[in-house]
Design a protein around this nucleic acid. Structure first.
Length: 174
DNA sequence: AAAGTGATCATG
DNA sequence: ATGATCACTTTG
């Protein structure tokens, strides 16, 4: 098990999204116990030119964090009730991020944050140095499938078609 | 199928 | 200040 470092996050969001499928999302709970779950699904959001990306409309109070160097968390509230966890990637000044859409046992972007008690207090948390939220990788490669991103009807047709959603292949049950 | 919920951003 | 919109989940 190796904790991901700054250089691991210094890649474009699509590359990072593929790398993060099968990696371990780690959370130290308030009672001190560490919960580790394998990431099962991710989505890439790639810069101001990606009309599905929150940074599409430029840098604002909310999207500011996406412009920082890769490795920190971007957490925001959706529909007034769901906290969404993203991992910022790429170079400083380039707004890219990977939405974590599910971990084993808590599939769904709103479900995993609820399960791991991740909320907006984790916004801007540095996953490289934080002792309450980080990501680890074992050496193993996992298979995954690519498909269009979810819930982005507001984006251009072209961006809706991009297959920037990555889902781990379910282990075959013999 | 549709409600529920509140931050956020563009408009005035 | 007001209003539309939303990287969703649950319930019927």
């Amino acid at each position: 098990m190796r904790r991901l470092g700054r250089e691991d996050y210094a890649v474009d969001a699509v590359t990072a999204a593929k790398m993060l499928v099968g990696a371990w999302l780690c959370r130290r709970m308030d009672d001190g116990g560490v919960v580790r779950r394998r990431i099962t699904e991710t989505e890439a959001y790639c810069g101001e030119e990606d009309t599905a990306c929150h940074a599409h409309k430029g840098r604002t109070a909310r999207t500011d964090v996406m412009y920082s160097a890769g490795g920190c968390a971007y957490v925001y509230l959706c529909y007034g009730m769901h906290e969404m966890l993203n991992v910022v990637t790429g170079a400083e000044g380039r707004p890219e991020a990977v939405l974590i859409r599910g971990v084993e046992g808590a599939e769904g972007p709103g479900r995993l944050t609820k399960f791991l008690k991740i909320d907006r207090s984790h916004n801007r948390e540095d996953l490289v140095s934080s002792n309450r939220l980080w990501i680890e990788a074992d050496g193993t490669k996992v298979k995954f499938t690519s498909s269009p991103r979810i819930g982005i009807a507001y984006a251009s047709k072209r961006d809706q078609k991009r297959k920037w959603r990555f889902t781990i292949c379910r282990k075959k049950v013999s």
